[in-house]
């Protein structure tokens, strides 16, 4: 049986392979760390009581990455690709940012008709269905008069029935902006 010999090329290959693997896994850990404070993605199941319960969203700007805090500190983004009707009947989905007094840009791209004035998907979403090809980004611009406050935004995203106005779900959202604040 021939003896296995580790050549220089094998060593270099192994070092590069393990280095690339570790760097990527490090990127994954960092990604998980940032995911809850930078362009946080969440899902929306409605109505409340059916499907997974809405998880309150708490964003602490102190947990953001250094590059973001240095280069782009005064914008916060939230995003969703998932709005799913878990009810037994169709609903027109109307979205509302409750208690929001700071400027927010809604960037909506979906395979479903959207009315930007009423913030409503104008066709009913069938039971068990999700809005296809959905991407909504809420870009929040933090005005100067708010930047010194400990809480930049305390409200939430309401999902209403576009026809009846009935509240179908509510996801609480709080943005903590006080530098050095530790939520534990």
């Amino acid at each position: 049986m021939p003896a296995f010999k580790i050549t220089k090329a094998t060593k270099i290959f192994s070092i590069l392979f393990i280095g690339a693997l570790c760097l990527t896994l490090g990127g994954s850990l960092y990604s998980a760390h940032l995911a809850k404070s930078e362009i946080l993605h969440f899902w929306i199941f409605f109505p409340s009581g059916r499907g997974p319960p809405p998880t309150p969203i708490q964003i602490n700007v102190n947990e953001q990455g250094s590059l973001k805090r240095i280069l782009n500190p005064w914008t916060i983004a939230l995003s969703t690709h998932w709005i799913i009707n878990t009810d037994h009947q169709p609903h027109k989905v109307q979205l509302e940012l409750v208690n929001c007094t700071i400027p927010v840009e809604w960037e909506v791209n979906a395979g479903f008709p959207w009315d930007p004035d009423t913030k409503t998907f104008t066709e009913p979403l069938d039971p068990g269905e999700g809005i296809p090809y959905l991407g909504i980004d809420w870009i929040i611009f933090v005005p100067e008069n708010v930047r010194g406050q400990e809480v930049w935004y305390d409200g939430g995203l309401a999902v209403n029935d576009g026809d009846t106005g009935e509240r179908l779900s509510f996801i609480p959202i709080t943005i903590y902006g006080g530098w050095g604040l530790n939520l534990g």
Binding site: L16, A20, L21, T24, G27, A35, K36
Partner: peptide, 27 residues
């Protein structure tokens, strides 16, 4: 070496994300 090292690192979190009971996550 670099490309396959990256690729395994790219897939590993996604595959581990499929193991065990699924729970909704933020982010």
């Amino acid at each position: 070496a670099i490309r396959y090292g990256f690729f395994i690192g790219f897939l590993l979190p996604a595959i581990l994300g499929m193991i065990g009971p699924a729970t909704p996550v933020l982010g």
